[in-house]
Design a protein around this nucleic acid. Structure first.
Length: 529
RNA sequence: GGCUCGGUAGCUCAGCUGGUUAGAGCGUGGGAUUCAUAACCCCAAGGUCGGGAGUUCAAGUCUCCCCCGAGCCA
């Protein structure tokens, strides 16, 4: 069975997780859950990138060994994702000894293919970028334009990867529609490649905190070379011997790499070339998403306005943050985190519109129909206005999620809830109940709204798994398993619960309804986050 | 400095190959209602579409220049 493999970047352990990493990871989580709900077998990879001089120095500054520092930070990531209930199947650390073995095997292939050459590299180096700066600013004390830190003069013999040999293949690759997403990022990479690809160095000398290059004493691998390979190591079963070829049986090639727009070049150019050299298939798609600002300003330590995902989690909860990030920020574009808007949207959409819909409908059904789902009558038919709305919403959600358009998906689910609320106000069952002989009409109306509400819960499952579960439980429905070990359904089988749930009329009349509890509380933030 | 993307109501954004009075949600104001989490539903106000020039019978939508923001390459 085909595996849907997707990855977050392997986060650099230079510092603790920030909101940006949480954003990327949550988006991937939504995709992974959606695929699992559709019955796909999913391999969702995340992890940490732990080598390089920058890490070594950060550790020294903290008076820790590099390993101790990496252990600390990567454990922080692992713990954070677990508390966010991220459904990753793997968490790879590039300091894993197994990774070292895989890198050696990969390197051997690249070398056997004639793509490794020695070259002298001389120039100004930025440790923060872990890169040589081609155009040295001439003067005596050049600074890195990005980090505003002094550059260091290096003169060393390194190993180079012969990227230049792959010019034509890379050009063809990035021309393919869909490989680089969103499409608006394609040109930038094309122009970069059009300038002519130059070989890039894949080793460093006298940098102990890295993976040793076999056969080249004193060389360690350049951090990017080793980090990208983490995607492969992650796929291997932790108990099986490390055999590069085996990744083909474990989900390679990936369907999707989700990354921040700043590292598109590495994923859309360098990485495919490395894979070509090693004779491995290429990933289907590289999605470069935008960055988050906060209240219109760039987040940064110097400004002291960094939004900590731990704080967000504790004070606001998973559903609220996921909803805001997925529903309001166009995936792919830059976005701005605004606290007022955050609470407005969460309270309006989740508490007032969706939560209250369930609450009011369930309360009426219980009051007038013996604590249970009323008889459906004509409302069971698929031409009921809410049935039509539900089917349309379901279609939109599925299409939107396939396109990684979380906003459209969230909007579609929300619109269904709005339609159901509107229908209730039009039909006003509370008025009808005061009249004689209107009970069957009221029953139909309430059934239709309860069923539409069930649909809202179903459609929210990939985006807000927890809210979805709380709603389904109140409706007496079995919640869906979209977690790491969710069982996949063979293609063509009709056993996929989530897809089955997207049929109008699945709610059983007569089913007991438990006393409604608010499924989503309003956010009341007295102080800024 | 070069390249790319974006700059549309207070806020977040839709506006396909140029064509009737520029749309939605949030926020704001008003109304209606009481089943419900002071919730839901309805209505309204709000924009010289970043600035300037040009092409056209007609431009938010095409061309050029400039300004602002972001990313990449230097």
């Amino acid at each position: 069975m085909m595996t849907y493999t997707l990855t977050t970047p392997l986060y650099y352990v230079n510092d603790r997780a920030h909101l940006g990493s949480a954003y990327t990871t949550i988006a991937c989580d939504a995709v992974a859950r959606h695929q699992r709900l559709r019955g796909e077998s999913v391999m969702f990879v995340t992890g940490c990138d732990e080598h390089g001089q920058k890490i070594q120095r950060t550790a020294e500054a903290a008076e820790l060994s590099p390993q101790a520092h990496c252990d600390l930070i990567s454990e922080g990531y692992r713990d954070l994702w677990s508390r966010w209930q991220i459904s990753n199947d793997r968490f790879i650390r590039t300091t894993d000894p197994r990774h070292q073995q895989l890198v050696a095997q990969f390197f051997a292939r690249v070398q056997a293919n004639g793509d490794v050459v020695e070259g002298r590299q001389q120039g100004w180096y930025c440790v923060a970028c872990e890169e040589f700066k081609d155009d040295a600013p001439g003067s005596e004390d050049p600074e890195c334009p990005i980090h505003l830190k002094p550059l260091e003069w290096r003169d060393e013999v390194n190993l180079f990867f012969r990227l230049s040999r792959y010019q034509a293949q890379i050009e063809a690759l990035i021309r393919q529609p869909g490989f680089i997403a969103p499409a608006s990022r394609q040109k930038e990479v094309q122009n970069f490649v059009a300038q002519g690809l130059r070989d890039f160095s894949i080793s460093r000398i006298d940098l102990p905190w890295g993976i040793p290059v076999p056969g080249h004493e004193g060389h360690t691998f350049y951090v990017w070379f080793d980090a990208l390979l983490g995607y492969l190591t992650a796929l291997l079963d932790p108990n099986e011997p490390v055999v590069l070829e085996q990744v083909l049986e474990r989900g390679w090639p990936a369907q999707l790499h989700v990354i921040g727009k700043d590292i598109l070049r590495f994923h859309a150019v360098y990485w495919p070339a490395m894979l070509l050299s090693a004779g491995l298939p290429l990933p289907e798609r590289v999605f470069g998403h935008g960055f988050l600002t906060r209240e219109g300003q760039k987040m940064g330590k110097s400004l002291g306005n960094v939004l900590n995902p731990e704080v967000l989690l504790e004070r606001c909860g998973r559903d609220a943050v996921r909803w805001y990030l997925l529903r309001d920020i166009p995936f792919g574009e830059d976005g701005d985190f605004q606290q007022q808007r955050f609470t407005d949207l969460v309270n309006n959409d989740l508490a007032n519109t969706i939560g209250n819909l369930l609450n009011r409908t369930s309360a009426m059904a219980r009051r007038w129909f013996a604590d249970s789902v009323p008889p459906a009558g004509a409302a069971a038919q698929v031409d009921h206005p809410l049935a039509v709305a539900a089917l349309a919403a379901g279609k939109s959600v599925n299409v939107a999620l396939t396109d990684f358009d979380f906003r459209r998906a969230a909007e579609a689910a929300l619109q269904l809830a709005i339609a159901a609320n509107g229908f209730l106000n039009e039909q006003a069952p509370w008025k009808q109940m005061k009249l004689e002989g209107q009970e069957s009409l009221v029953a139909e109306d309430l059934y239709a709204v309860l069923e539409a509400t069930r649909w809202v819960a179903v459609l929210l499952a990939p985006l807000l798994p927890e809210l979805s579960v709380r709603m389904l439980v109140q409706l007496g429905q079995a919640p869906f398993d979209s977690g790491p070990r969710a069982p996949a359904c063979p293609p063509g089988s009709n056993a996929c619960p989530w897809l089955l749930a997207q049929q109008w009329g699945r709610l059983e009349p007569g089913l007991p309804l438990i006393e409604p509890q608010p499924v989503m509380l309003r956010l009341e933030l007295e102080s800024p986050l």
